[in-house]
Amino acid sequence: MTSAASRLRVAERDGITCVEFIDRNILDEANIQRIGEEIGQLIDAQPQPRLLISFQNVDHLSSAALGTLITINNKIKSKDGQLRLADIDPQIYEIFVITKLNKLFKIYKTSEEAIESFA
């Protein structure tokens, strides 16, 4: 799934699409747009998507990246799917807390815990 220009690593595990970011910084508009499009294609390809996004490699993200995550969440909800976030660095998790998006998203400490949580 990972192509030369892809910004994501994608793997399938127990019917769950697991996504990791290649970039350590998810900040600039063009990069975020590209990530949103790639994840959008993954969602479109499944009738009822079950998606795990791991932030294991991510050091920085911006409010624009949060916006893309919200769009992804809405898209998955519209298909009655499930989204989980995991492996978020404490500094980045603080961004989710400040914006109260930790209440909107289902966030797990590790990818393992997130995978176990899927219905």
Binding site: S62, A64, I70, K103
Partner: peptide, 15 residues
């Protein structure tokens, strides 16, 4: 507003 994709930048700057 919580599900709107934009409008969080100033809040993060102030935080």
């Amino acid at each position: 507003n919580i599900e709107l994709p934009s409008g969080r930048g100033i809040m993060l700057m102030r935080s």
